[in-house]
Amino acid sequence: MSDLLLAILPVFLLAGLVKGVIGLGLPTVAMGLLGALMPPAEAAALLIVPSAVTNIWQMLAGGRLIALGRRLWPMLAGICLGTWAGSGLLARDPTGHAATALGAALIVYALAGLAAPRLHLGPRTEAWAGLPIGALTGLITAATGVFVIPAVPFLQAIGLEKEELVQALGLSFTISTAALALGLARDGVFGFDIAGASLIALAPALAGMWLGQWIRLRVSAQTFRRCFFLGLTALGGYLVLRGVL
């Protein structure tokens, strides 16, 4: 366990730093790096506490939580249903397909971030699209431990203001983390030992967030974001190649 902690502490420091600079990316970076060191199910379990605490913090920062909950409840319900429907995909994966799927998800997310497409969904489309978007996000969460696709592009496309978007991301990620934690606990992955390690990982994650916020005030976030997505593309490609070779 001591060797494991030495390996994961810098991972969560880096992941927290990324979240502090661009507002998201902690589970994505952590899953990508830890997926190269351990089974994806264990990596997903390790990120539960740092992800939950940082996302609750982000979710509560602002005065629009109730209004956002009313607006986004179909997507949030879909996330829960999709995650629970796919529960066990990470835990029962002796072939390593989950790591390959994780790599593919990272590449898709990174390429979408680099392209920065200007999508827009009207109220009518938003009303019916929320549930299937959430369900698909939940299934991808259950299979890979990454809960940004396609929820993040959807939230970016429905016309939220900047601060509303940040709070909506925190709300979406909090629900995804809770649903994933319940699924992993049911599958016997998120036990006391891994929960303790996850709690220890909270400290470097918070330190990384603080450092990232400090950096965000001094460098171009757009430049850092571009480097971040390029790095994720390379990391995802490595995981895919490792899984198919």
Results as ranks from 00 to 15, higher is better:
Gly69Met: 08
Gly69Asn: 08
Leu72Tyr: 02
Trp73Arg: 08
Pro74Gln: 02
Met75Gly: 15
Met75Cys: 14
Met75Ile: 09
Leu76Val: 03
Ala77Cys: 08
Ala77Thr: 11
Ile79Val: 15
Ile79Asn: 15
Cys80Leu: 14
Thr83Asp: 12
Trp84Ile: 09
Ala85Ser: 03
Gly86Asn: 11
Gly86His: 10
Gly86Gln: 10
Ser87Cys: 05
Ser87Ile: 00
Leu89Pro: 13
Leu90Ala: 07
Ala91Ile: 00
Arg92Tyr: 12
Arg92Ser: 14
Asp93Cys: 02
Asp93Arg: 04
Pro94Met: 01
Thr95Phe: 03
Thr95Trp: 01
Thr95Ile: 02
Gly96Ser: 09
Gly96Asp: 06
His97Ile: 11
Ala99Leu: 05
Thr100Val: 05
Thr100Ile: 03
Thr100Glu: 05
Thr100Ala: 03
Ala101Pro: 00
Leu102Asn: 14
Gly103Trp: 02
Ala105Ser: 15
Leu106Arg: 06
Ile107Gln: 06
Val108Gly: 13
Ala110Trp: 04
Ala110Leu: 02
Ala110His: 03
Leu111Trp: 05
Leu111Thr: 11
Gly113Val: 00
Gly113Leu: 01
Gly113Ser: 02
Gly113Met: 03
Ala115Met: 12
Ala116Cys: 07
Ala116Gln: 09
Pro117Cys: 03
Arg118Ile: 01
Arg118Tyr: 01
Arg118Asp: 15
Leu119Arg: 09
Leu119Ala: 12
Leu119Gln: 06
His120Gln: 15
Leu121Glu: 13
Leu121Tyr: 01
Gly122Leu: 08
Pro123Arg: 12
Arg124Leu: 04
Thr125Cys: 10
Thr125Met: 14
Glu126Pro: 11
Glu126Gln: 10
Trp128Ile: 03
Trp128Leu: 02
Trp128Ser: 09
Gly130Arg: 15
Leu131Met: 09
Ile133Tyr: 01
Gly134Arg: 13
Ala135Glu: 07
Ala135Lys: 01
Leu136Met: 14
Gly138Ala: 05
Leu139Ala: 11
Leu139Ile: 03
Ile140Arg: 13
Thr141Glu: 13
Thr144Trp: 04
Gly145Cys: 11
Val146Asp: 05
Phe147Tyr: 11
Val148Thr: 14
Val148Arg: 05
Ile149Tyr: 07
Pro150His: 02
Pro150Trp: 00
Ala151His: 10
Ala151Asp: 13
Ala151Tyr: 08
Val152Lys: 03
Val152Leu: 15
Pro153Tyr: 00
Pro153Leu: 01
Phe154Ala: 04
Leu155Ser: 05
Leu155Gly: 08
Lys162Tyr: 06
Glu164Asp: 15
Leu165Gly: 03
Ala168Gly: 10
Gly170His: 01
Gly170Gln: 01
Leu171His: 05
Ser172His: 05
Ser172Trp: 00
Thr174Met: 07
Ile175Cys: 12
Ile175Met: 11
Ser176Gln: 07
Ser176Cys: 06
Thr177Leu: 06
Ala178Arg: 07
Ala179Pro: 09
Leu180Met: 11
Leu180Lys: 04
Leu180Tyr: 02
Ala181Ser: 12
Ala181Leu: 03
Leu182Asn: 06
Leu182Thr: 12
Leu182Cys: 08
Gly183His: 04
Gly183Asn: 05
Gly183Cys: 08
Leu184Lys: 12
Leu184Tyr: 09
Ala185Cys: 06
Ala185Leu: 09
Arg186Glu: 10
Gly188Pro: 13
Gly188Trp: 01
Gly191Asp: 15
Gly191Ser: 10
Ile194Val: 15
Ile194Ser: 09
Ile194Pro: 14
Ala195Tyr: 02
Gly196Trp: 12
Gly196Ser: 13
Gly196Arg: 10
Gly196Val: 08
Ala197Ser: 12
Leu199Asp: 05
